[in-house]
C-alpha cells in the first residue's frame, strides 16, 4: 500500500466522506486517491476558505469532512478557522503539505514555512508533523482525536515524508 493509499484508507475507516482539496504538487498522489475513492465525495475548492465553508456545511449535514491544502493556506484561512470552524466548534482534519522545509527547491516557499507552526500555535490548533514515512501510523489516532474534540487539527506533511517529489 502506498502512503497515499494508506492516508485515504484511514480517512475512509474514520467515516470521512467529504473531502475538499486545493492542489499541491506534493499532495498530487493523495488527491488522486481521494478522487478514486468510492466512499468519498471529492469537491475541489478554488480557495481554502471556500473549502472550509463547504466542510462546515457538510459537517452540519451529518458527514465527516476533511480539507487537503498547502501551508500557504494558513495565511488565507485564519479568519475562517477562528470565526467559523472554531467559533461554532466544528471538527476539521487539515492534511497540509508543509512546503518550504528540507528538500525544498523553491526559496519563496520557505517564507511561509517559517511562520506555519507559529501561526498554528497562536491559533491553538493541535498540530502534528509527519517527517518520516512511518509517522503516518499516527493518522488514525489523529482523526479519532479530531472528531472527539470538534476542533480543526493540522497534519503537516513535509518533503522528507513524501520522499521528494
Amino acid at each position: 500500500m502506498s502512503v497515499s493509499e494508506k492516508i485515504v484508507s484511514d480517512l475512509v475507516a474514520n467515516q470521512v466522506s467529504f473531502v475538499t482539496t486545493v492542489p499541491c504538487k506534493q499532495l498530487a498522489g493523495v488527491i488522486d486517491e481521494v478522487e478514486k475513492s468510492k466512499d468519498i465525495y471529492h469537491i475541489p475548492a478554488n480557495k481554502e476558505d471556500e473549502g472550509m465553508g463547504l466542510c462546515a456545511g457538510a459537517y452540519m449535514g451529518g458527514k465527516r469532512p476533511a480539507i487537503i491544502m498547502q501551508n500557504t493556506a494558513i495565511g488565507v484561512t485564519i479568519n475562517t478557522l477562528v470565526t467559523l470552524t472554531q467559533y461554532y466548534r466544528m471538527p476539521l482534519p487539515m492534511l497540509i503539505s508543509y512546503r518550504g522545509e528540507l528538500g525544498e527547491p523553491v526559496a519563496c516557499q520557505v517564507e511561509m514555512a517559517v511562520h506555519t507552526k507559529a501561526l498554528l500555535a497562536q491559533l491553538n490548533i493541535p498540530t502534528y508533523h509527519f517527517h518520516k514515512e512511518e509517522d503516518v501510523e499516527e493518522l488514525d489516532s489523529i482523526l479519532k482525536y479530531t472528531f472527539m474534540c470538534n476542533k480543526p487539527v493540522a497534519i503537516l506533511t513535509d518533503a522528507s515524508f513524501w520522499q521528494g517529489y
Binding site: 476558505d49 471556500e50 473549502g51 472550509m52 465553508g53 463547504l54 456545511g57 452540519m60 451529518g62
Partner: peptide, 13 residues
C-alpha cells in the same frame, strides 16, 4: 462570503 459554500456543503451531504 461563505454562506453559499456552507449551503452547498450542506445540500450535498
Amino acid at each position: 462570503g461563505l454562506a453559499s459554500s456552507i449551503g452547498l456543503g450542506l445540500a450535498l451531504s
